[in-house]
Design a protein around this nucleic acid. Structure first.
Lengths: 174, 174
DNA sequence: TAGTGCATGTAATGCGTTACATGATTTC
DNA sequence: GAAATCATGTAACGCATTACATGCACTA
């Protein structure tokens, strides 16, 4: 089984409870999407591959005339997931168009360049609002789910302050 | 001209001085790579497209028997770059395998789960060392180039402290 | 003279999104 | 009965990396 990015997201999520492809997409969007997105075009083919490999098992769970296929983790899948969890790789890939603009902002008049810093701050604000909106108040999450959620909030708050600091610094030094 | 991700990186970099494809790859790796990577497979075809569109102009600059083609920004290219710089979009795409692991770490025994936090901290440390290594001490950078470099450093330092804080918090609450 | 760096490029492959097609069920 | 939601899936496309091929020039 050739594991790829989306493999672990799926295994990890259906470990909590059996899910359909549709469920998975929603779970991804509600939880890990801000640092790891996944689309139907990845999820459905990956479910096939995972079932072929014996890491998950699908069962028909039609709801009246509405077809539905629920997948659950097999023992082999559980082992694979735990193996991956023990990995300690930490390469992080960032793609941040706002930083790219900022990097070239010296080509703009100073006031407009500072505007890009303000725009970045606004981006963090919107992300923060989005993350706060995810909190549906349904009781306490497991500790590490909570840690990752906090990371999102803390990261945005840090980013907002960072933009403020830099704007002040640049205004003073000019 | 259908502009894509790599378009702006190239235009922005050759705005500073004319460059070859090879130069561009090196410039990308030395400056923006930690938040916006680009490979030869993107750069060379994109140079063609940009020249066809009239945003850059290539000139032969062979070095003895070693062929070399230097590209410079045209007026049209300068205008296109500045238009893009005025944009205020700020969607940031993150892909962070370490956060994904952390999110599922509740499946591990507590001590091992905490190990993932330590591993993340180590990742920030390595990135920080990498960024510090980029500073070749060649005098002051333009203000916004410097701002983005600082962002990298500050972000790593924040990340290290964040991991520390979370580790302490989780150890206390358990 | 062997290794490294300069320099250009392409082909194969993989990753991921978008847009579309289809149809049932629930809710207003 | 219209609209939203549940549910599955694929085809086309675009973005990006990796690996390879080629050859010159410098330096140890």
């Amino acid at each position: 089984m050739e594991a790829s990015a989306v493999t672990w997201a799926i295994l990890g999520l259906i470990r909590q409870r059996p899910m359909s492809g549709y469920d998975l997409k929603r779970a991804v969007d509600r939880t890990i999407r801000h640092f790891w997105a996944a689309s139907y075009g990845q999820i459905y083919p990956e479910l096939r591959r995972l079932e072929d490999a014996g890491w998950i098992e699908g069962a028909d769970a039609a709801n009246g005339g509405r077809s539905r296929r629920l997948y659950r983790l097999t023992d082999a899948g559980r082992v694979a997931l735990e193996d991956w969890l023990h990995g300690h790789e930490t390469r992080l890939e960032l793609r941040d168009e706002s930083l790219l603009r900022l990097f070239f902002a010296d080509a703009l008049p100073p006031e407009e360049a500072l505007g890009l810093l303000a725009a970045r701050r606004e981006g963090y604000r919107m992300m923060l609002a989005y993350l706060r909106g995810l909190d549906d108040g349904t009781g306490p999450d497991p500790p590490f789910v909570d840690v990752v959620y906090r990371w999102g909030l803390d990261h945005c708050e840090w980013g907002i302050e960072w933009c403020d600091r830099q704007e002040r610094r640049l205004r003073q030094s000019s």
